[in-house]
Design a binder for these strands. Structure first.
Lengths: 219, 219
DNA sequence: CAGCATCCGCTTTGATACTG
DNA sequence: CAGTATCAAAGCGGATGCTG
């Protein structure tokens, strides 16, 4: 709420989204699309309800999001990003890329929501064999199953299971599951850390970057 | 200082640099390189001295910056980004890109430092005629003169004047000077808004992007 | 139940003054 | 120059209550 009063583009951006929780609200709206108040609350564990209401109001007046009344069958108010708000995706991307190395540190009492793996997955994975038939990975960790699949060269994550059987299923604690997914851990290390890997392990290698693995993420 | 306690890469990044002023301190260190306490203070108008000291301590323990004792002739402590800290440049870039449109709004009592135009200049300009001889623009606004010059295709900004005479000189209020530079204003509009344009105006067109101009930035 | 508003104690921030 | 010390004001977190 308090402005830096600096004629600098970075400071101006922080005047809009620099308050505590604001960028995480944007993250949640990018991940979920138009959302109800209570869905945002569920996706933002730890936020006080008055703060969520405050931030939504502020971000609305600042043009980052807008409130729409859902049509009769649903009859609830939805919060969704404006075009300008969606442009904050580049900021979120940069935060995620910088933060992924921090995910290797222990995370005992951290909250976790399955959808949060979407960003690291999409930003750190790419299809190294776009010519071959598409593949799907089912990830079972956190509050809901997630599917990570290829579609013509791109890698995409979404909540839910696959229609058909996935090529490989990863189940277990969030940390080593993420570590295995993005290539910080080998299959063997992830197994030791409690990850169940079922199916064709080679699809993991197909999506992983060609970078060197990172010191153990097995918490 | 207070953690979000979310096992999410964006939240983890904000745990490190999400406190008020932290990212602006990083901006300043990216802009200035290793800096003394008082130089940081001068580049961060509005910060309270205790907060600057606090943030420097926190960012040091978190591995974003380090304190080095300058050799005898200078005999002062310098603050500089670590390698990890320098990687935050992508975050700053994203903030700047999103914030530049906000620079069109009035900015009466905002603080301003000349170096802050470096980022918009480098991020929004490119040399459209890399084959031709390099050009230099001298910008006179704010607390010190700045030079924007091309060197094999890239555009770079630095404090100070050119050794030789610049191809064009822009002098006047920060807002229309920036507007003219990045193509939000035409030369005529900028002149009306109090900018003195001396020299070869064509070098401005050479550096500007090929995007449509923006509604008046003439404050 | 969804979508807040209110109250209260604690923490962070901001402004200023002061010091080795 | 490079900070500490002090203190008031604002912001935040947690609990709870209210309204359609």
């Amino acid at each position: 709420v308090r402005s830096y009063r600096q004629y600098c583009a970075a400071a101006k951006t922080l005047d809009v989204v620099g308050d505590r929780w604001s960028l995480l609200i944007v993250r949640e709206l990018l991940l979920r699309g138009p959302s109800r108040y209570s869905d945002l609350q569920a996706g933002l564990p730890g936020i006080a309800t008055n703060l969520l209401a405050d931030r939504l109001r502020e971000l609305e007046t600042k043009g980052v999001l807008e409130r729409v009344e859902a049509p009769p069958p649903i009859a609830t108010t939805l919060f969704q990003l404006t075009e300008r708000g969606r442009e904050l995706e580049d900021v979120i991307d940069a935060l995620i890329r910088w933060g992924v190395p921090l995910m290797a540190e222990p995370s005992h009492n951290d909250h976790f929501r399955s959808r949060w793996i979407s960003y690291p997955a999409e930003l750190f994975l790419s299809d190294n064999a776009p010519g071959e038939p598409p593949v799907a990975i089912e990830v079972r960790t956190g509050d809901e199953p997630m599917t990570i699949e290829t579609s013509d060269g791109a890698v995409h994550a979404r909540p839910g299971r696959t229609a058909e059987t996935p090529d490989v299923v990863l189940a277990g604690p969030a940390q080593p599951v993420l570590g295995l997914l993005i290539g910080y851990l080998t299959v063997a290390e992830a197994r030791t850390a409690g990850v169940e890997v079922t199916g064709d392990e080679r699809v993991l290698r197909r999506l992983r970057p060609l970078r060197p693995p990172h010191p153990a993420m097995a918490r």
